[in-house]
Computed example of a mutant assay.
Amino acid sequence: MRRYLPSLSALHAFEAAARFMNFTKAADDLGLTQSGISRQIRNLEEFLGVTLFHRSGPRLVLTEVGATYYRDLALALDKLQEISIDAVRGRSVDSSLMIGTHHTLASRWLPARLGSFIAGHPEIPIEVSPALPTTDFDTTRFDITILRGAGTWLHTRSIELFAEKLAVVASPGLIAAGERLDPLDFAKFPMLQNASRPSLWLHWLRVAGLSYNGRIQGNRFAHNDMLINAAVHGIGIAVIPICYIERELASGELHMPFGEAVRSGDSYYAVYPERKSHQPSVILFRDWLIRQTRKYERIATADE
């Protein structure tokens, strides 16, 4: 008996359009034209006999049926991708612990500690990928994430790990190591900007309790890894979360001439979908994270 299934192309087009809420972006993502996306979705709506989008000029809004269909479809496409990858590599994606976190945390803070989890649980293969605070935990493939925020994500359980602390850092080639300056002297030096968090200088001023009315400008870098490298090479001073620069601070490649780090008001949380809260590997990794961050907090407090 033939299955009642629309074409895979139509499903891909709808999933991309619902994910971006924009036909043009969906077309770019799939390498199609905007008219091609529109045609595929029209065919899908005719096949199902339901309306998936309300169209109001350039704006798209999912209908109630469309929103439910998108949520279930995203899970189904993820599963289809998983079994396809399984066939290629010879083991199930379900056997891996899927970990998501911010790009720089994944490349700096986490690898410095992850070896102990791998050594303690060699039976649990892990996969680490970038994750955003806007992750949809209803449909995500991640088993557990480490995210910065205020602790509020829908359909999740979250546990605070450690507070984010910000510092203005410099290379000893730009400001001599050990030199202590008035915090407001930062304006005398070239400043580096973080394009992914453009208000970070203003935020640092506020949480540090400083009043400054001058201009804040400087060369911009797309993300923290680039910003850190620029600061290490003496291009300028930068506001950076100190959890990203443990190695550079310990080695003396960077130092904090304008005072100690201050709390930003955000924290890093272990966040995992409610539907995966009883998964043994999630519980193991969550508890390991809590132990690791308690050690990190004790060391960080001792250094202050």
Rank of each mutant, 00 (worst) to 15 (best):
R2W: 02
L5M: 06
L8K: 04
A16I: 01
A17E: 00
M21L: 13
M21W: 04
D29E: 11
D29L: 05
D29S: 13
G36I: 01
R39S: 10
R42L: 11
L44N: 02
G49V: 00
L52T: 03
P58C: 02
R59P: 01
L60S: 05
L60C: 01
E64C: 01
A76N: 03
A76E: 08
I83S: 00
I83G: 01
I83W: 02
I83K: 03
S84M: 04
I85L: 07
I85G: 00
V93W: 04
S95P: 05
T101H: 06
T104F: 10
S107Y: 09
R108G: 04
R113K: 04
L114T: 00
L114G: 01
G115R: 00
F117S: 01
F117E: 03
G120F: 00
P122H: 00
E123P: 01
P133H: 08
T135Q: 09
D136G: 07
D136H: 03
R141V: 12
R141H: 12
T145N: 03
G149C: 11
A150Q: 14
W153A: 09
L154R: 13
T156F: 08
I159Q: 12
I159V: 15
E160C: 13
A163Q: 15
V169N: 08
S171F: 05
A176G: 12
G178R: 10
G178F: 11
D182W: 04
F186D: 11
F186P: 11
A187P: 02
F189K: 08
A195Y: 10
S196Q: 13
S196W: 08
R197Q: 14
P198N: 12
P198W: 12
P198C: 13
S199E: 14
V207R: 12
A208P: 04
G209D: 02
Q217E: 12
G218F: 05
N219A: 14
N219T: 14
N224Q: 13
N224D: 15
A231F: 13
A231P: 13
V232C: 14
G234R: 11
I235V: 14
A238V: 10
I240R: 05
I240L: 09
C243W: 05
R247K: 14
A250W: 02
G252T: 10
E260L: 13
E260H: 14
V262W: 06
G265H: 12
Y268Q: 12
Y268E: 15
Y268F: 15
A270S: 09
A270C: 03
A270T: 05
Y272R: 09
R275C: 06
H278N: 14
H278M: 13
S281T: 11
R294M: 06
E297P: 04
R298F: 04
R298S: 00
A300S: 07
E304Y: 03
